[in-house]
Design a protein around this nucleic acid. Sequence first.
DNA 1: TTGTAAGCGTTATCAG
DNA 2: CTGATAACGCTTACAA
Lengths: 351, 351
Amino acid sequence: MSHEGSRPTTIGEVAHAAGVSHQTVSNVLNAPERVAESTKERVHDAIARLNYRPNASAKRLRTGRPATVAIRFDANWDEGTGSLLDRFIHATIDEVSARGMRALAYTADQPDRELRTIRELLEARDADWLIVTSTFPGDPRVSWMIEHEIPCVLFGRPWMPDGTVSAAPVLWVDVDGRQGTYDATRSFLDAGMTRIGYLDWTYSSGTGVDRRSGWEAAMVERGGLGAETLSTLVQACPDDAEHATAAVRELLRRVPELEALVCASDTLAVGAMKAAADERRAGLRVAGFDNSRTAALLGFSSVDQNLARVASLCLDLLAARAEGRGGPSNALVHPSFVDRAQPYTLTASGR
Amino acid sequence: MSHEGSRPTTIGEVAHAAGVSHQTVSNVLNAPERVAESTKERVHDAIARLNYRPNASAKRLRTGRPATVAIRFDANWDEGTGSLLDRFIHATIDEVSARGMRALAYTADQPDRELRTIRELLEARDADWLIVTSTFPGDPRVSWMIEHEIPCVLFGRPWMPDGTVSAAPVLWVDVDGRQGTYDATRSFLDAGMTRIGYLDWTYSSGTGVDRRSGWEAAMVERGGLGAETLSTLVQACPDDAEHATAAVRELLRRVPELEALVCASDTLAVGAMKAAADERRAGLRVAGFDNSRTAALLGFSSVDQNLARVASLCLDLLAARAEGRGGPSNALVHPSFVDRAQPYTLTASGR
DNA sequence: TTGTAAGCGTTATCAG
DNA sequence: CTGATAACGCTTACAA
């Protein structure tokens, strides 16, 4: 069955082969209940024999139904969030395919170029829906999309510069970071630990505040610690392993009795693991956030963002909106705490 | 200008607004030379005012011209090649867009699933062309695509299990690894160094042999070293930094007078940099392969694969084939050696 | 249950 | 230089 040269089979050829009209073939595919069992079988045979697939362009042109989801692919991610976005894109493509739609990838190095690209994609109907990642407080893309009523959904809340979530009419799906760190902290508390620290990001962000609040809530709920003690247990640094190592070393010196550490990201958690090794505190329990491959490799616990669920909800929201159904305009996904026993110990090399 | 609700403008509406027929509008866009300057201007005005964009599905249906390139997006890459493939996908999307086409992303965790996905994509005309990455010797996808005459191009040579390149009628573009390591080695030789080692992969592959041969050629060309001396200068290890560090330490102990080291990958080069630090050999010059962000960050030289050029050639080959023009069916890209002075020195921490 | 006819928006052919 | 007409392959009324 060669591909080249032989034009793809059309519905007419199938109809001819099965001895029926265009329509019956179309009905077999789109309204099977209206067609007799015997003819259905004959048509299916012809379809299989001729290897027929409906022409996607013709179908889209005729039905006007949404069929393509655009997503930005940016190779310039920093190491930290890079793999997470990779995994999200992967999950999104999977979910899009599962719904019989296609994923269109585009790139955009500058924000204004991105807006133009999006506009072209949607206006030419090359894409019907849009999934927007890596939004940030005051993101111009978000306000532009709200203004133009672009059929899009954000992965991440529309954080305002003041740290609140915008109530603007935009679809979004995010992971409940607070719940994630709460669950992580609770798992340590339930195991009988009391001195549980938190490794925060130095730069403030909605996401950062959200995640820290889960640890705080669990600690406060447990009681027995004053507010000043709580802040003693927090250390902050930029989102890379080197800085994290230094920060955790300092924390360990300040709070030698520290038993566990909840981190704002897996990147920070890796640094914490190294610091524990350096300070000969292999018993220190560490929990990260993202459940990256590294977390699995080094064997520390982490909060899984359930990206498949996020992607699925993104498309649910878009579909509901496209069909004019009401329903929620956003969703907060409950992440999963993946508990690992830390079977491995990092050893500082070169000693 | 709201997007939702207001159906996209059609060519008929533009024609009406400009006081001309469908056709003239189409001609303005597709055959401008056939249209009078004055009407052209009026039509362009109407297009801008109504914000008209031709419907991509209708255009594809009518012209049948290739418009979409499918590329696989796999989140399960190992760290080593991951970022390179990311960058290649990025370059491909850029190049595809520059040619007015679109990039369709698909995923496939298993080879047989991938074949089915490809088939569906092409038969439904969701995609017209295919770019295949990460091929390996004896790759079943390659033989399947040759057999079915799929309009695809490989990034990477169709290596046979015996290390030769298949002469099968398949389009491919690859980077001349031999040339890359040759250039790297020559730069060290030209700087007056003589003891230049090579850090190889332990597993054998066409790519691996290809890259090592460039170093060998430069060393042999320079002369003054017997064959046994040449093999003394080679060390091999798996493609990760940890193993590379150990391997280079051993090499440095065996050949203390080593001045420079050409590595099969940047991942290996990172390990070499660490080993140099550990062994207090900060003066050791290192060259990697891929010109990754890490190479720039740590300041060691590296061979750049010129991915934009690769992507461009991939589309050139596909276009030539689609148009029935003859011409070469493959291309070898000359990589660029990026010379860096190694201004930074890695210092082993915790000492 | 099946077939006929129309039209989605575009471009190509071919008159005027 | 411009405009009517047909066709790309499909689905959705509607009629047989």
